[in-house]
Nucleic acid binder design. Structure first.
Lengths: 200, 200
DNA sequence: ATCATTATGGAATGTTCATTACAAAATTTT
DNA sequence: AAAATTTTGTAATGAACATTCCATAATGAT
């Protein structure tokens, strides 16, 4: 009944996400987004409403994608808990390494959003989403780690919640370290050392 | 021979640093800096040249202060290496906890600068300073950890350089986690777990 | 007390930015 | 092929921003 869009929304969100990851929300202009997505200003505003709304959509998609990936790995009850955590961390390290060769920006949109928007009164909603996502991630991690503790695969010197916070912080540290330009071998060292902390 | 400044440069840098830590470089306006420091626009530009120059000075002062504090703790050769690392991590965790009660912003200017400026062509110089600082920090950590390995206090399953990268990443993770609003008990869990990774 | 020098307050400037308005173009349905 | 509807390109708008200007005020040296 009318003219269709000349682009696929997902692809636009993906391109915008890369731009936001590279430059952050504040340093990304509407012009930058047009450049990155190939859309004109009108199309962009027509389809997404505002820069902030597009950012919110990118963040939402990123969080969902990342959460689902994590759940798939951590929820694989057939495998030992330690292996699941190891797989998750190694996946992140190798993903960061691939970003380098692909010329894509390194780092994590959730981590960068905390760094950029934690105290930004105008973007409370985005931070709330990150907080919710973090809470869910911590919950899942703690559940899995608790199973590992019961099986004797994981130390019980620290509570499952404490270990979950540690793993979560390690991931953030890994991503920031990668964004700072650290070589992939070193990222693997970090992963290996992180795993040592969980040993009984 | 002329009218003196009505403020102390260090205090202004300190106030500006808090503002930059809270909002980042891009989201901090000249007006925000005037508000935070109590200076007028003219005084600010007269004394610091530009917003970017003031940021560079804040970053430099922050890096120096942080590095010196780390060196004092890590360089205390009278103490076991493990204790020195523990002291450093606990100091960071408690500093973050104090920030909450003091109403000051949490997080780390160096970490946030990596997140915000890693791919910013206009601020290569600031990133270079952070990179240099990180390299020096890693070097010191590796030296200290190597001593700990030789003394049997620290695992030698991972190279001293790898362990240094791990400790550095842990600190970044700790600071981002704190900035995300994590309670101080959990920060202590993270520290305790991080230390476990270094045990032989 | 006066001069030389510098700081300061407030207005002004030019730019960048997010967003909107409008007219033209495109596409599906009839 | 024409009508209805929506996209899209271009130009416009108004606000925010970094920075500068200028007149005035303050201070130390003489």
């Amino acid at each position: 009944m009318a003219r269709p869009l000349s682009f696929e929304r997902d692809h636009v969100v993906e391109a915008a996400t890369r731009t936001f990851l590279r430059h952050g929300l504040h340093a990304t202009s509407a012009e930058d987004l047009c450049q990155a997505t190939g859309l004109g200003r009108s199309s962009l505003y027509n389809s997404f409403g505002s820069k902030d709304a597009l950012f919110a959509e990118c963040l939402g998609a990123y969080l969902t994608r990342t959460r689902e990936r994590g759940e798939a790995i951590l929820g694989d009850t057939a495998r030992p808990v330690r292996d699941r955590i190891a797989t998750l961390l190694r996946l992140i390290a190798s993903e960061e390494a691939e970003r380098v060769s692909a010329g894509e920006p390194r780092g994590c949109l959730a981590v960068n959003t905390v760094a950029e928007l934690a105290d930004d009164a105008e973007h409370v909603e985005s931070m709330r989403r990150v907080d919710e996502d973090t809470a869910a991630r911590l919950h899942l991690l703690a559940d899995v780690l608790r199973v590992g503790q019961a099986a004797g695969e994981i130390t019980d010197q620290v509570s499952a919640e404490g270990l979950a916070a540690f793993v979560n912080a390690s991931i953030a540290g890994l991503r920031i370290t990668s964004q700072g330009g650290t070589a992939s071998d070193r990222l693997e060292d970090i992963v290996a050392t992180t795993l040592r902390a969980l040993d009984p």
